[in-house]
Amino acid sequence: MRFLRSSDAIILAILAVAMIFIGLVNPAFWQMSNLFSLLKENVVIGIMALGVLLVMISGGIDVSFTAFAVAGMYLVVRSMVALDYNGLVLPFASAIIIGGLLGLMNAGIIHKFKMIPLIVTLGTASVVRGLVLGLVGTSNVNINKMPEALVNFGKTDLFVLERANGSTYGLTAMIVIYLGLAVALHLVLKHTMIGRSVYAYGADPEAAKRVGFSTGKTMIFVYVTAGALAGFAGLLHSSMIWLANPRDFVGLELDVIAAVVLGGASIFGGRGTVLGTVLGVFILVMIQNSLILMGIDTTWQRVVVGAMLVAAVTVTALRDRRALV
């Protein structure tokens, strides 16, 4: 069984062990309402993680996607408020396009100037955040101003259950969108030439060029898709929390990157699977959200996330250990 030896299987095993452990510490973990809210928490981080996965498979790293998510979300919501527009398709399409275009900027700079992606994306993140906050505005769009269509969309549940006390809770329908995107990305990565070209580029850019892959096209695919996913996730986030905050997502980069690394992707490129990333996101969100259940103060959250990232990269570094010198 090839799967049992894969890193996905290991991650799945870690997830199972972690769930059993948390459940033993506090059986409340297994309550449906808790599991549903965990799944809901997965959606936005997960969609962003899919984009970061793509970038990491190509051998890069992206810290600009949160800024792009803010741009997609805030520009669209503010425009909707200003134009008194109340729809869904056009706004989400716009957020995707905004994110995609910003991603194109990353791709262009990284490919043309052959500069380290980390430094380029640090720069573009600052540019985009600066422009959004400096030119568009710094104030939140609150629930009372939020376009109704967006809010209602974000409230959609797949099904609703009732607690003993009569209050209800549901499983958000957004999880379907997230998993749909994950499956779509998996299929693209596994079954299309452009998908395999990302792995090929990440494994050895020079060889990819020699074989005849158009590396520029690959870079564009990677960063535009990552940007589009971020833009989409940004708007989806605001529709789920009924709020558009232009200072949102600060520091979320790390959580997302940690989740992707946790999911077995390698920063050296050429490695990483959608399944692993989805599992990595779930582990990260679960542990973050279960600290309270386990009686640990939330101030420890960042320590835990950072430590998880360090642990995950240590394991992958041991796996990918290169030659002695």
Partner: peptide, 14 residues
């Protein structure tokens, strides 16, 4: 032998 980017990103959070 962890890549500096990821190592310091993680410790920075810690």
């Amino acid at each position: 032998k962890i890549t500096p980017i990821l190592a310091t990103l993680g410790t920075g959070q810690v």
